[in-house]
Design a protein around this nucleic acid. Structure first.
Lengths: 135, 135
DNA sequence: ATCTAGATTTAGAATTAGTCTAAATCCACT
DNA sequence: AGTGGATTTAGACTAATTCTAAATCTAGAT
């Protein structure tokens, strides 16, 4: 798995790759600032702007996904397949889950809204298992 | 409809009421800054901070709803019943629609995520009718 | 009427996320 | 070595939102 096709795409620079690896290795949903911290451990000179540039590049290349909730900063997700999210109203934790039924509602939603559908996404708000317990 | 119960709740100050009326009269989804502009026409001295304070109060009182999409500023919505949103990937337009099937997925989502469900919300991303036409 | 305590409002400073800019660097090709 | 295009960097900048401290308002007790 070493030299597979490292340089076949000259656009995957060391900085972009560092950002990509940071996201791939985490199972949570880091913010740009989390990613900056972690990327700097691999590539000490990397700048904040480059992290944002890399995130945009990776997003456009379909390698990572951005998740936006108004609460605060965008999160980034290594999972690029369609899936849904639950957010804890108590501690803010964000978890992924896959509900196949959601996809089935895309056409109905398009009909109601008169939009041409591109993607659908279901968000559950509630209380996460940890917060349930400690209350 | 004049003195109905104007002062029955001392907490609905003139500022909060101005903010509330601004939201009620609009059928779109204004940002805090839109609301500030409009509220200032009613109450010229109102400050930005008070608009935010009022929005928080109204939200907590269940009189308006906040809609957050990462794109930029939060929007506020006079519709407090459960409903869904479509966002145009092209022009950013946000429209409401009601898809009864969404509510039915809440329990399934809670099961998958192990959260205690409080609300569900479906978001459709796509192209709005206007952008469809002009392309 | 007056006083006081608590809540609310105000203006502006502060914070935070994210973008922009211009100079420096890198890389592939001549 | 030399050029052009893309990328990276540091830091300035912007926009949204929150915080702070002083001023104001309000309701109830005197």
């Amino acid at each position: 798995m070493k030299g597979t096709k490292k340089n076949s795409d000259p656009k995957l620079t060391p900085q972009r790759d560092a950002v990509f690896q940071v996201i791939r290795e985490r199972e949570d949903h880091p913010t740009a600032s989390d990613i900056f911290e972690a990327a700097r451990r691999r590539l000490p000179g990397i700048s904040y702007a480059t992290v944002y540039n890399s995130l945009r590049y990776l997003k456009e290349a379909g390698l990572v996904r951005e998740i936006c909730f108004g609460d605060s900063a965008s999160r980034y997700d290594r999972e690029t397949e369609r899936h849904d999210h639950a957010i804890c109203d108590c501690c803010g934790k964000l978890v992924d889950f896959h509900l196949p039924e959601t996809a089935a509602l895309m056409q109905a939603a398009a009909r109601k809204s008169k939009f041409k559908a591109q993607s659908v996404h279901l968000t559950l708000r509630g209380i996460c298992p940890d917060c349930k317990e400690s209350s």
